[in-house]
Design a protein around this nucleic acid. Sequence first.
DNA 1: CCTCGATTACTACCATGGTAGTCGTGATTC
DNA 2: GAATCACGACTACCATGGTAGTAATCGAGG
Lengths: 130, 130
Amino acid sequence: MKGPRHLGELQLAILRALWQQGDSAVSDVHAALRDRGLALTTIATMLRKMEEKGLVAHRENGRQFLYRARVAPELVQRNLVSELVSRLFDGDPLELVNHLLRAGEIELDELDALRRKVAEAERNAPRERP
Amino acid sequence: MKGPRHLGELQLAILRALWQQGDSAVSDVHAALRDRGLALTTIATMLRKMEEKGLVAHRENGRQFLYRARVAPELVQRNLVSELVSRLFDGDPLELVNHLLRAGEIELDELDALRRKVAEAERNAPRERP
DNA sequence: CCTCGATTACTACCATGGTAGTCGTGATTC
DNA sequence: GAATCACGACTACCATGGTAGTAATCGAGG
Protein backbone atom coordinates (compact mmCIF):
# COMPACT_ATOMS: atom_id res chain seq x y z
CA MET A 1 0.00 0.00 0.00
CA LYS A 2 2.37 2.67 -1.14
CA GLY A 3 1.38 6.31 -0.89
CA PRO A 4 1.27 8.66 -3.83
CA ARG A 5 4.02 11.14 -3.09
CA HIS A 6 3.76 13.93 -5.59
CA LEU A 7 0.15 14.67 -6.33
CA GLY A 8 -0.33 17.75 -8.43
CA GLU A 9 -2.87 20.41 -7.73
CA LEU A 10 -5.34 19.37 -10.40
CA GLN A 11 -4.96 15.70 -9.68
CA LEU A 12 -5.88 16.24 -6.08
CA ALA A 13 -8.91 18.26 -7.08
CA ILE A 14 -10.01 15.44 -9.35
CA LEU A 15 -9.56 12.90 -6.59
CA ARG A 16 -11.65 15.05 -4.30
CA ALA A 17 -14.42 15.14 -6.86
CA LEU A 18 -14.31 11.36 -7.18
CA TRP A 19 -14.32 10.87 -3.44
CA GLN A 20 -17.32 13.11 -3.13
CA GLN A 21 -19.36 11.89 -6.05
CA GLY A 22 -18.39 8.27 -6.35
CA ASP A 23 -18.33 6.81 -9.86
CA SER A 24 -18.22 9.69 -12.28
CA ALA A 25 -18.09 10.17 -16.01
CA VAL A 26 -15.50 12.54 -17.39
CA SER A 27 -18.24 15.09 -17.84
CA ASP A 28 -19.21 14.78 -14.18
CA VAL A 29 -15.70 15.52 -13.05
CA HIS A 30 -15.53 18.34 -15.53
CA ALA A 31 -18.72 19.79 -14.14
CA ALA A 32 -17.42 19.55 -10.60
CA LEU A 33 -14.39 21.60 -11.58
CA ARG A 34 -16.13 24.02 -13.91
CA ASP A 35 -14.85 27.05 -11.94
CA ARG A 36 -11.44 26.34 -13.38
CA GLY A 37 -12.63 26.75 -16.93
CA LEU A 38 -10.72 23.74 -18.22
CA ALA A 39 -11.48 21.90 -21.41
CA LEU A 40 -13.25 18.59 -21.12
CA THR A 41 -10.34 16.96 -22.86
CA THR A 42 -7.99 18.20 -20.19
CA ILE A 43 -9.97 16.32 -17.58
CA ALA A 44 -10.07 13.21 -19.75
CA THR A 45 -6.32 13.30 -20.27
CA MET A 46 -5.68 13.82 -16.62
CA LEU A 47 -7.88 10.88 -15.71
CA ARG A 48 -6.06 8.66 -18.17
CA LYS A 49 -2.69 9.69 -16.79
CA MET A 50 -3.92 9.10 -13.28
CA GLU A 51 -5.12 5.67 -14.25
CA GLU A 52 -1.63 4.84 -15.50
CA LYS A 53 -0.35 5.71 -12.06
CA GLY A 54 -2.99 3.61 -10.35
CA LEU A 55 -4.71 6.56 -8.73
CA VAL A 56 -8.05 5.88 -10.40
CA ALA A 57 -9.74 3.08 -12.31
CA HIS A 58 -12.56 3.03 -14.79
CA ARG A 59 -15.31 0.74 -15.96
CA GLU A 60 -17.42 1.18 -19.05
CA ASN A 61 -21.07 2.03 -18.94
CA GLY A 62 -22.38 2.07 -22.46
CA ARG A 63 -20.31 4.67 -24.22
CA GLN A 64 -19.22 6.33 -21.06
CA PHE A 65 -16.24 5.68 -18.84
CA LEU A 66 -17.10 5.74 -15.18
CA TYR A 67 -14.07 6.59 -13.08
CA ARG A 68 -13.54 5.93 -9.42
CA ALA A 69 -10.71 6.70 -7.05
CA ARG A 70 -8.43 3.80 -6.19
CA VAL A 71 -6.77 5.54 -3.26
CA ALA A 72 -8.49 6.26 0.00
CA PRO A 73 -8.72 9.87 1.16
CA GLU A 74 -7.22 8.91 4.50
CA LEU A 75 -4.12 7.53 2.83
CA VAL A 76 -3.59 10.59 0.69
CA GLN A 77 -4.16 12.85 3.65
CA ARG A 78 -1.70 10.91 5.73
CA ASN A 79 1.00 11.15 3.10
CA LEU A 80 0.52 14.78 2.26
CA VAL A 81 0.26 15.90 5.84
CA SER A 82 3.25 13.94 7.02
CA GLU A 83 5.24 15.25 4.11
CA LEU A 84 4.34 18.79 5.02
CA VAL A 85 5.18 18.17 8.64
CA SER A 86 8.60 16.80 7.84
CA ARG A 87 9.36 19.58 5.38
CA LEU A 88 8.11 22.40 7.50
CA PHE A 89 8.07 21.37 11.13
CA ASP A 90 11.03 19.07 11.49
CA GLY A 91 8.75 16.09 11.52
CA ASP A 92 6.94 17.13 14.68
CA PRO A 93 3.17 17.12 14.12
CA LEU A 94 2.57 18.91 17.38
CA GLU A 95 4.46 21.87 16.02
CA LEU A 96 1.89 22.05 13.27
CA VAL A 97 -0.92 22.32 15.78
CA ASN A 98 1.07 24.92 17.64
CA HIS A 99 1.38 26.86 14.43
CA LEU A 100 -2.35 26.70 13.80
CA LEU A 101 -2.97 28.16 17.22
CA ARG A 102 -0.43 30.95 16.94
CA ALA A 103 -1.59 31.87 13.45
CA GLY A 104 -5.12 32.15 14.78
CA GLU A 105 -6.42 29.48 12.44
CA ILE A 106 -7.97 27.56 15.29
CA GLU A 107 -9.03 28.69 18.73
CA LEU A 108 -8.33 27.14 22.08
CA ASP A 109 -11.93 26.28 22.79
CA GLU A 110 -12.35 24.64 19.41
CA LEU A 111 -9.35 22.51 20.20
CA ASP A 112 -10.82 21.72 23.55
CA ALA A 113 -14.13 20.70 22.04
CA LEU A 114 -12.39 18.47 19.54
CA ARG A 115 -10.27 16.94 22.26
CA ARG A 116 -13.37 16.07 24.22
CA LYS A 117 -15.12 14.66 21.21
CA VAL A 118 -12.25 12.42 20.29
CA ALA A 119 -11.79 11.27 23.85
CA GLU A 120 -15.46 10.35 23.89
CA ALA A 121 -15.21 8.45 20.63
CA GLU A 122 -12.15 6.62 21.86
CA ARG A 123 -13.97 5.55 24.98
CA ASN A 124 -16.74 4.03 22.88
CA ALA A 125 -14.46 2.34 20.36
CA PRO A 126 -10.98 1.99 21.81
CA ARG A 127 -8.06 1.92 19.42
CA GLU A 128 -6.47 -1.44 18.82
CA ARG A 129 -2.78 -1.29 19.65
CA PRO A 130 -0.43 -2.87 17.05
CA MET B 1 3.08 41.09 1.86
CA LYS B 2 2.37 38.41 -0.71
CA GLY B 3 2.94 34.81 0.08
CA PRO B 4 5.03 32.48 -2.05
CA ARG B 5 2.51 30.01 -3.35
CA HIS B 6 4.40 27.29 -5.10
CA LEU B 7 7.62 26.56 -3.30
CA GLY B 8 9.41 23.55 -4.64
CA GLU B 9 10.91 20.86 -2.52
CA LEU B 10 14.51 21.99 -2.88
CA GLN B 11 13.69 25.63 -2.48
CA LEU B 12 12.01 24.97 0.81
CA ALA B 13 14.98 22.97 2.01
CA ILE B 14 17.27 25.85 1.11
CA LEU B 15 15.06 28.30 2.94
CA ARG B 16 15.15 26.07 5.98
CA ALA B 17 18.92 26.05 5.90
CA LEU B 18 19.00 29.83 5.68
CA TRP B 19 16.52 30.23 8.51
CA GLN B 20 18.59 27.95 10.66
CA GLN B 21 22.03 29.25 9.85
CA GLY B 22 21.42 32.90 9.06
CA ASP B 23 23.68 34.44 6.44
CA SER B 24 25.24 31.63 4.48
CA ALA B 25 27.63 31.29 1.58
CA VAL B 26 26.63 28.97 -1.21
CA SER B 27 29.02 26.41 0.18
CA ASP B 28 27.34 26.61 3.58
CA VAL B 29 23.96 25.85 2.08
CA HIS B 30 25.53 23.11 0.03
CA ALA B 31 27.02 21.61 3.15
CA ALA B 32 23.71 21.75 4.96
CA LEU B 33 22.11 19.72 2.17
CA ARG B 34 24.99 17.36 1.51
CA ASP B 35 22.77 14.29 2.04
CA ARG B 36 21.14 15.06 -1.27
CA GLY B 37 24.39 14.74 -3.17
CA LEU B 38 23.77 17.81 -5.30
CA ALA B 39 26.43 19.75 -7.13
CA LEU B 40 27.51 23.03 -5.65
CA THR B 41 26.45 24.74 -8.83
CA THR B 42 22.93 23.43 -8.41
CA ILE B 43 22.65 25.22 -5.11
CA ALA B 44 24.12 28.39 -6.60
CA THR B 45 21.66 28.34 -9.47
CA MET B 46 18.77 27.71 -7.16
CA LEU B 47 19.77 30.61 -4.95
CA ARG B 48 20.00 32.92 -7.94
CA LYS B 49 16.57 31.87 -9.16
CA MET B 50 15.17 32.34 -5.69
CA GLU B 51 16.67 35.79 -5.54
CA GLU B 52 14.85 36.69 -8.76
CA LYS B 53 11.63 35.69 -7.04
CA GLY B 54 12.45 37.73 -3.97
CA LEU B 55 12.72 34.73 -1.71
CA VAL B 56 16.32 35.44 -0.72
CA ALA B 57 18.81 38.29 -0.96
CA HIS B 58 22.57 38.38 -0.97
CA ARG B 59 25.37 40.70 0.02
CA GLU B 60 28.98 40.37 -0.91
CA ASN B 61 31.63 39.50 1.59
CA GLY B 62 34.98 39.59 -0.17
CA ARG B 63 34.65 37.01 -2.87
CA GLN B 64 31.73 35.27 -1.29
CA PHE B 65 28.04 35.88 -1.60
CA LEU B 66 26.25 35.69 1.69
CA TYR B 67 22.61 34.78 1.24
CA ARG B 68 19.79 35.35 3.65
CA ALA B 69 16.10 34.51 3.53
CA ARG B 70 13.79 37.40 2.75
CA VAL B 71 10.64 35.58 3.78
CA ALA B 72 9.80 34.76 7.36
CA PRO B 73 9.27 31.13 8.28
CA GLU B 74 5.92 32.00 9.84
CA LEU B 75 4.69 33.45 6.58
CA VAL B 76 5.74 30.45 4.53
CA GLN B 77 4.24 28.10 7.06
CA ARG B 78 1.00 30.00 7.06
CA ASN B 79 0.72 29.87 3.29
CA LEU B 80 1.69 26.25 2.89
CA VAL B 81 -0.48 25.03 5.71
CA SER B 82 -3.52 26.99 4.68
CA GLU B 83 -3.08 25.78 1.14
CA LEU B 84 -2.97 22.19 2.32
CA VAL B 85 -6.00 22.74 4.50
CA SER B 86 -8.05 24.16 1.69
CA ARG B 87 -6.95 21.47 -0.74
CA LEU B 88 -7.40 18.56 1.59
CA PHE B 89 -9.77 19.49 4.40
CA ASP B 90 -12.24 21.83 2.77
CA GLY B 91 -10.58 24.77 4.38
CA ASP B 92 -11.30 23.64 7.92
CA PRO B 93 -8.09 23.62 9.98
CA LEU B 94 -9.78 21.74 12.77
CA GLU B 95 -10.27 18.83 10.41
CA LEU B 96 -6.51 18.72 10.05
CA VAL B 97 -6.06 18.34 13.78
CA ASN B 98 -8.75 15.72 13.79
CA HIS B 99 -6.84 13.85 11.12
CA LEU B 100 -3.63 14.00 13.12
CA LEU B 101 -5.41 12.45 16.04
CA ARG B 102 -7.11 9.70 14.08
CA ALA B 103 -3.93 8.87 12.22
CA GLY B 104 -2.14 8.50 15.52
CA GLU B 105 0.36 11.22 14.70
CA ILE B 106 -0.38 13.04 17.91
CA GLU B 107 -1.85 11.83 21.18
CA LEU B 108 -4.59 13.30 23.28
CA ASP B 109 -2.36 14.10 26.20
CA GLU B 110 0.16 15.83 23.98
CA LEU B 111 -2.62 17.98 22.69
CA ASP B 112 -3.73 18.68 26.19
CA ALA B 113 -0.25 19.71 27.26
CA LEU B 114 0.05 22.00 24.29
CA ARG B 115 -3.34 23.49 24.98
CA ARG B 116 -2.28 24.28 28.53
CA LYS B 117 1.01 25.74 27.42
CA VAL B 118 -0.58 28.05 24.87
CA ALA B 119 -3.26 29.14 27.29
CA GLU B 120 -0.53 30.00 29.75
CA ALA B 121 1.44 31.98 27.19
CA GLU B 122 -1.67 33.83 26.14
CA ARG B 123 -2.33 34.83 29.69
CA ASN B 124 1.13 36.33 29.98
CA ALA B 125 1.11 38.08 26.62
CA PRO B 126 -2.45 38.54 25.42
CA ARG B 127 -3.10 38.75 21.71
CA GLU B 128 -3.55 42.21 20.26
CA ARG B 129 -6.78 42.42 18.33
CA PRO B 130 -6.59 43.88 14.79
C1' DC C 1 -28.41 4.21 -44.80
C1' DC C 2 -26.51 8.60 -43.48
C1' DT C 3 -25.65 12.40 -40.75
C1' DC C 4 -25.31 14.62 -36.19
C1' DG C 5 -23.95 14.95 -31.57
C1' DA C 6 -21.71 13.22 -27.59
C1' DT C 7 -17.79 11.15 -25.80
C1' DT C 8 -13.12 9.46 -25.16
C1' DA C 9 -8.33 8.42 -27.12
C1' DC C 10 -4.24 10.08 -29.00
C1' DT C 11 -0.77 13.37 -29.24
C1' DA C 12 1.72 17.60 -29.46
C1' DC C 13 2.88 21.37 -26.76
C1' DC C 14 4.20 24.64 -22.96
C1' DA C 15 5.84 26.20 -18.42
C1' DT C 16 8.50 25.21 -14.58
C1' DG C 17 11.37 22.99 -11.10
C1' DG C 18 15.45 20.96 -10.89
C1' DT C 19 20.27 19.51 -12.45
C1' DA C 20 24.78 20.12 -13.80
C1' DG C 21 28.58 21.52 -17.10
C1' DT C 22 31.50 25.24 -18.45
C1' DC C 23 33.39 29.79 -18.06
C1' DG C 24 35.34 34.09 -16.06
C1' DT C 25 37.32 36.41 -12.23
C1' DG C 26 39.95 37.41 -8.52
C1' DA C 27 42.97 35.86 -4.70
C1' DT C 28 46.95 33.16 -3.23
C1' DT C 29 51.40 31.23 -3.53
C1' DC C 30 55.88 30.52 -5.21
C1' DG D 1 54.25 37.67 -12.85
C1' DA D 2 52.67 32.95 -13.79
C1' DA D 3 50.24 28.88 -12.24
C1' DT D 4 46.74 27.37 -9.41
C1' DC D 5 42.55 27.43 -6.78
C1' DA D 6 37.96 28.81 -4.99
C1' DC D 7 33.84 30.70 -6.12
C1' DG D 8 29.78 32.19 -8.44
C1' DA D 9 27.54 33.33 -13.14
C1' DC D 10 25.69 31.79 -17.16
C1' DT D 11 23.44 28.54 -19.86
C1' DA D 12 21.76 24.35 -21.76
C1' DC D 13 19.20 20.49 -20.63
C1' DC D 14 15.76 17.14 -18.74
C1' DA D 15 11.54 15.45 -16.45
C1' DT D 16 6.99 16.39 -15.30
C1' DG D 17 2.48 18.54 -14.51
C1' DG D 18 -0.74 20.62 -16.99
C1' DT D 19 -3.32 22.14 -21.35
C1' DA D 20 -5.85 21.61 -25.33
C1' DG D 21 -6.50 20.45 -30.31
C1' DT D 22 -7.76 16.76 -33.44
C1' DA D 23 -9.29 12.19 -34.67
C1' DA D 24 -12.00 8.04 -33.97
C1' DT D 25 -16.06 5.76 -32.26
C1' DC D 26 -20.80 4.85 -31.54
C1' DG D 27 -25.66 5.61 -30.66
C1' DA D 28 -29.85 8.15 -32.12
C1' DG D 29 -33.02 10.14 -35.41
C1' DG D 30 -34.48 10.95 -39.96
